[in-house]
Each structure stands twice: as structure tokens, then as C-alpha cells.
């Protein structure tokens, strides 16, 4: 398997958790770049060009509210979870915990199977 295929698999896996990562950080209003930094500081690097379209999509889906605010001379758009977004975050967090528990079991059994084979 070449590096490119592995990189694509990793990207695909990370793409699946982007929405949940973003929702988890929006209990308080954030503008795009501050959110990017916040995620990056906690180890979740997102391409800046991916984040804004994702925020817009989540807003269109009714999970976020947004508002333009001028700071200095620069207008910035702040995004924050609304009630529906909080609900979605709660549900998705549950799904995530269940999924990680299942994955943990699967990976553990895979590791122990490997040990038996060896």
C-alpha cells in the first residue's frame, strides 16, 4: 500500500470527526480563525479552507447561529451553537463514545488475535 493511499484513508477518517470537533468548541461564539486556533491548540488541525465551508453548512442545517461583528476595522463572523446544535452535539457525542468503545474492543481483539498467531 503506497503512502498516498494511507494518507487518503487518514484524511477520510479525520473528515468524519470534523463536524463533531467543530460543534464541540462552539458553546461560546467563535469566529473562524479563533476556532481554527482553538482546534489546532488541542491537536485537531483543520485546513482553513475546509473550516469555513463546514461552518456555513452547519449553519444552513440549522445547528449554528452566526452574527457579523466589527472589531477594530475588521468585520468578523461569529458562530455559536443554537438549541438544535446543542441537541445534535449531545447525540453525536453519545454516538462517538459508543463508536470508540466498539472500536477499542475491535482493536483489542485484533491485537490479541495477532499475539495468538505469533
Amino acid at each position: 500500500m503506497d503512502d498516498q493511499t494511507l494518507r487518503n484513508m487518514e484524511l477520510e477518517m479525520r473528515r468524519g470527526v470534523l463536524t463533531l470537533s467543530v460543534l464541540s468548541q462552539l458553546h461560546t461564539p467563535q469566529y473562524g480563525y479563533s476556532l481554527l486556533q482553538r482546534l489546532s491548540d488541542q491537536g485537531m488541525d483543520i485546513d482553513q479552507n475546509t473550516l469555513y465551508p463546514l461552518l456555513r453548512r452547519l449553519e444552513k442545517q440549522g445547528l449554528l447561529d452566526s452574527d457579523w461583528s466589527v472589531e477594530g476595522n475588521r468585520p468578523r463572523r461569529y458562530y455559536v451553537l443554537n438549541d438544535q446544535g446543542c441537541q445534535a452535539l449531545h447525540t453525536m457525542s453519545e454516538v462517538w463514545r459508543d463508536t470508540t468503545a466498539v472500536m477499542q474492543r475491535l482493536l483489542n481483539s485484533s491485537d490479541s488475535g495477532k499475539d495468538v498467531d505469533q
Partner: peptide, 16 residues
């Protein structure tokens, strides 16, 4: 709307 947002993102990136 997207243009305004992109402008904001570019300026934030440059400032950072």
C-alpha cells in the same frame, strides 16, 4: 457573504 468571510479569514491568517 462568502467573499466577506474569505476576506476576514485571509486577513486573520496574515495577522497571525
Amino acid at each position: 457573504d462568502i467573499e466577506s468571510e474569505l476576506r476576514s479569514l485571509l486577513l486573520d491568517t496574515l495577522e497571525d
